[in-house]
Design a protein around this nucleic acid. Sequence first.
DNA 1: TCTTTATATGCGCCATTTCGCATATAATAG
DNA 2: CTATTATATGCGAAATGGCGCATATAAAGA
Lengths: 122, 122
Amino acid sequence: MAHIKINDLTSFHGALNDPLRLRLLRLLMERELCVCEMMRVLKTPQYKVSRHLGVLKKAGLIRDWREGTWIHYEIAPAIPGVLKESLVCLRSLWDQSSVIKHDLRILGRSSARKPGEPVVNC
Amino acid sequence: MAHIKINDLTSFHGALNDPLRLRLLRLLMERELCVCEMMRVLKTPQYKVSRHLGVLKKAGLIRDWREGTWIHYEIAPAIPGVLKESLVCLRSLWDQSSVIKHDLRILGRSSARKPGEPVVNC
DNA sequence: TCTTTATATGCGCCATTTCGCATATAATAG
DNA sequence: CTATTATATGCGAAATGGCGCATATAAAGA
């Protein structure tokens, strides 16, 4: 069980301190997504999505990998247990927000590409 | 069950986005405290403690009342259930930090004045 | 190689936040 | 009324953070 530094806590709470980042993280708690999908769901310019994903990544909350020209993001599998539990708890809080609810509805309508399936649209 | 606006979420996470505020809030999760006690425990100038308590108060997380020249602070009793649960969850996370652990040890050594008891020191 | 698609980032600008000092306020004691 | 104790706050400077544009990078396709 590793120590957590007060700076890690600050960067954690800092990462959650922006509406767009909150929404991005919440989407990623549903499933792995590529940047262009998040752009579409949140109707947000590419440079914003990339920038804010960068902050979440730097805080260690998400990780990414490349597949062709796409970059996929997902919740970092290696985050400590206490942190994961906190996120699950916070999810219940966030889900009371109508903006978050709306985002999830839009995400639900957008089709998930299954692994190996050819890239269709973006 | 009231809706929570995305702005409330932002102000919540914003309130937690500062090391000193985190430490203050954590102390108040132990027990009601007056400003001068928090100054002593956290070894922090008065204006900083007051300012940051003001932010926590504005976010609706704590409330205060006067007793003589002292101002007491405590966790707001009226905060919504989901929020309270989130705080309890986050407490486990924060408590892994050695800074927080240290603060709590110092607080434990400082004597709590019981209600009605005369004010002794500060 | 040239183009297109997907994503990241350097940079300057503006808004927000924090700091530290000084001062204001409020209650109490003398 | 004056002094003291406890706390809050106005203000300017410094630091931080997000925005938007433009551009860089990287892979794939023609």
